[in-house]
């Protein structure tokens, strides 16, 4: 039982729009795994599948040894207490202050007395560099600050599995470095496993243990950061170096451009 999360040939579609056709990947215990891929290729969807918010159409999906799609609500909630997810857009509770947001999971799931909660919250906020912002409301935060508060909330209960959906988006280079290191340290200190979805290739290659590249609903490349950097695969090369032309489709599937333009005249 070395993998905490394992997906075998997982397929998923929204209605009749196929998003994932056969994804296979593993997240070993104690490791930090990155998932990269173009915008709209299904990374957020993948995380929601792991969290049990969506059910795959086919394939096997186990987390902590439990078959996620077959869990009932109780089982799912038990599992979710051991994992935590940083949402792409933060998803802070807008009616609660920064402090209460971070304290939320502690108050909901533990009976810790208020002074201990207070210390823990300040500790988490300190870790993301926002201890001074405890009394602000989410509407008074910048996008990057909100992301960091959401990060503090996600790590509030020291979960076994952390999922970060684009933790680096909207951060300046300094906080980006700090947050990157924080994610790495948390993973090691807690002995947890983490999945990071990111577009920030250079930063993530420095902190992660393994990388999966997702395209068109499939894993197209994988490897350790060193393998990725030296990869000859045109796909990986294009993505790592950010080139416009290559095998990665930049556009949402559509009828050919000329056809769409000419079609209007023909009609």
């Amino acid at each position: 039982m070395s993998s905490l999360v394992s997906l075998r040939d997982v397929r998923f579609s929204y209605g009749n729009r196929d998003v994932l056709h056969g994804v296979t990947l593993n997240v070993p215990r104690g490791k930090l795994v990155a998932i990269m891929g173009g915008s709209g290729c299904g990374k957020t969807t993948l995380m929601r599948l792991i969290g049990g918010q969506l059910r795959p159409r086919a394939g096997q999906l186990t987390v902590c040894g439990a078959e996620v799609p077959s869990l009932d609500r109780e089982g799912l909630y038990d599992l979710r207490r051991r994992m935590s997810m940083l949402f792409q857009f933060g998803a802070l509770f807008t009616d609660l202050s920064v402090f209460d947001n971070v304290a939320f999971p502690m108050r909901e799931h533990t009976n810790m007395p208020e002074p201990i909660i207070r210390d823990l919250v300040l500790m988490k906020l300190h870790a993301v560099g926002l201890r001074g912002a405890e009394n602000l409301l989410p509407s008074e935060l910048s996008g990057g600050m909100a992301r960091r508060v959401a990060l503090a909330r996600a790590i509030a209960l020291d979960p076994e599995l952390m999922m970060y959906d684009e933790p680096f988006a909207g951060l300046d280079p300094i906080s980006l470095g700090v947050i990157g290191q924080l994610i790495r340290k948390l993973n090691d200190a807690l002995g947890a496993s983490s999945i990071v979805v990111t577009h920030d290739v250079q930063e993530s290659l420095q902190i992660v243990d393994y990388v999966y590249f997702l395209s068109d609903g499939k894993v197209v490349a994988e490897g350790t950061p060193d393998e990725i950097r030296t990869s000859e695969d045109p796909w990986v090369h294009q993505f790592v170096w950010g080139e416009a032309d290559g095998p990665v489709p930049f556009r949402y599937p559509a009828v050919p451009y000329e056809e769409a333009l000419l079609g209007v005249q023909r009609a």
Binding site: Q53, F87, A91
Partner: peptide, 25 residues
């Protein structure tokens, strides 16, 4: 409007992921 916005901004989904039932909470 309040519940709708909480849904639109994924607050309900986030709560659900924290194993806190949005219907109850």
């Amino acid at each position: 409007a309040e519940i709708g916005l909480m849904k639109a901004t994924e607050q309900l989904a986030a709560m659900d992921m924290m194993a806190v039932d949005p219907v109850a909470r």
